[in-house]
Amino acid sequence: MRQSGRLLKWAVVCFIGIFLPARGLDQRAPLENRLAKEELLLAKTPSLYFVLFTKSKVLALKSRGMILQEWKVKSVKAWGDGAPLSPLTLEKKSTLFPPKRTKIQPARNEEETGEFELEALELKDMPSRFSLFMSQLIRVYVHPQAKGFFPRLGNFGHLLAWNFWVPVQNLIFQMRKRDFGALDIKLEKKDDCQSVYWALFDGIQGLIFPL
């Protein structure tokens, strides 16, 4: 009885040690192959593109295969269909308080008024909580890790929306026989979220891969 128990233990160890890593590798290889093929198509154009690796939790902005900027993602959550393994286009960015461009008033320059006021849209003006509306009904919600009372309150609101509203939204799309996928990515710092908002402009293409 004791011996058969030991044998069973060994069998389990062997199964985990030999069979499971091989299975993991098998799943990874086709994905890496597909990613390389899809990325080659994007890298052939002079446009910038992004790649979001949902398992290794990295978001990269690239051009011609070269990484221009990289952000570490703290956590990734998902609802609905996985993102398709083909290029997605950022159709729209949505946020509660979108940054506003300053309208230049002709002839009201510093020489005339005697003072210089900087009318610039800079990184600090970018929002840190926003949604990315991708093609093929993929939504990506971006927000920073909450530190302090008000950011935590904001995160609580987001948590409610993510856990209650997004599944309902998914159900509505499913009833209409349309695929829907939502991703929630949390970045460590507010600045990171702001620079993601800056870097991902309307029309940029990118890939979301479970790697």
């Binding site: 086709p30 994905l31 597909r34 609802w79 398709p84 393994l85 083909s86 599944p167 998914n170 159900l171």
Partner: peptide, 19 residues
Amino acid sequence: AIIVAWPRGDSGLPIGFEP
């Protein structure tokens, strides 16, 4: 809604590959 929205597995793997 939660059951329907539960994340589904990876799709779109190349056909013809046997693990």
